[in-house]
Amino acid sequence: MPLLDVYAELGWWAIQSRDGDEVAVVEKFAERYNIATLCVASAEAMRGDLTLGNKRVAELVNQNPRFRGYVVVNPNHLEASAEDMKRYLTRSNFLGIVLPPPSLAHPLDSWRTLELVKMARRYDCPFVAFVETSEDAQALVSLTKSFPGIRFLMVPTQGSDWWAALKIVEDVTNISVVVSGLLTERGIVEQAIELLGERRVLWGSAMTRIHPTRSLGMIQEAELTERQRNMLVEINARHWLGL
């Protein structure tokens, strides 16, 4: 079955990645692992130049129908973020917004983040939010209470108390969880499905920061039914991202 990757990054994060054409690398992996659709955000926009990074993603998704884009926003640059949302979120090949990890910007329930989400309401699109601690999950729940109509894709990262994060969002039905190579502790896939239900768990490779075999290995190893596995790697993403 062709896979739908709900979170990949265009750009280089790690010293393990070689210099070169990251798009070619991602495309090579997409072919090799049968990933039909990749939803990408710009690593450059997250850590460096917001506008330039988002522009590069726009160029990529314009040229290659395999890719769909996220607009990265930066709570420290509300105006520039608003401009990029306006510029890209009306295009059919962009599907959502990525909030930078709280350690790079601000807590998910901060005034700045709330302002950003308010600005984005008109676009009716999902947000990707990184959770580095269980406090981040609590902050995400606070944020969603102010915006019950908005879908949030929560991405737990290595070192976070993911079980607490899952419990905190368990009953918040507009939050789904993305299992990815960013957190490989055993049990997260099975526990996410047990706590949130099989419709609220999605798969993201976290390429190019992490190689897709990390997360595909997790999904292969996890004790899941075939139906759960299919929902995880493709079906749920269509619903949550409106594809």
Partner: peptide, 17 residues
């Protein structure tokens, strides 16, 4: 691998690939 604390395949597959 860090198993069983981590998924074993996550450590093995990058090497095999």
């Amino acid at each position: 691998s860090g198993a069983p604390l981590h998924y074993f395949a996550s450590a093995l597959f990058p090497l095999l690939h």
